[in-house]
Amino acid sequence: MNLARLDPRVKLLILAGLSTAALVSRSYTTLLALLAISLIILLAGSIAPITIWMKLRGLFSLIVALFVLQCLFNRSGEPLLAFTKFTLITQAGFKTAAAISLRLLVILLAALIVTTGEARDYLLSLTTMKVPYEVAFMVLTALRFLPMMREEAQDVLCAAQLRGLQIKKAGLKRQVGAYSKIIIPIVAGAVRRAEDFSIAMEARGFRAHPQRTTMRKLRMRASDWLYLAVFCAIISSIEAIAAIAAFT
């Protein structure tokens, strides 16, 4: 089913379900199954593999870095890879690193499912799920500001480099110094924008009336219920099988 047509509440529940299942799962088989389900949902929902890769590309280095750090610093268990007498990677370290990377990947893929909808639909769905409108609005506004802040940070970084600041070739200490310098205008800009935004919102009557009405109503269709039911059944089955396997 095309994810863009799926009810936003179902997408939020899928995100919550997949993320929770990934966090509580202990076995690799379960995590791999969850990863497969996330991918199937995305691919069946008309999201092209190249789009998935483009969106996750930036975070892939983070996953790899986490994997390497876990491998190197988790020293418990039997040696898996050793150089003369020095143990490079232990079995427990490798297993923990693989589990953490898989968990993170499942959560990121689940988050991609939510990116297929409009922000106003999620606002509406959160309010129908009894989340206070102010809280839902704040969360979504903060998320909308993130790409803007990233663009601003890139521009400030470019401006500093064009004025001679060497960042890429500098040592770690100088890099930290340079980045801390650059954070100042980004934070100052974010605070100023938030102030302007709040004034603009109040000028347009935000919270002027306690009861909000909406022009559009969200309605769960039969296909949405069916999708949710199938998803819940699959996730429950996977978790049940994993629990039985762990018990036996």
Partner: peptide, 24 residues
């Protein structure tokens, strides 16, 4: 060329000055 090398030849002023002021 990297940005530092280009900056020695070309100076750039952004449309939004907030994006290039970062000193105290």
């Amino acid at each position: 060329m990297d940005l530092c090398a280009i900056g020695k030849k070309v100076g750039y002023v952004f449309q939004n000055p907030d994006r290039q002021l970062f000193n105290d």
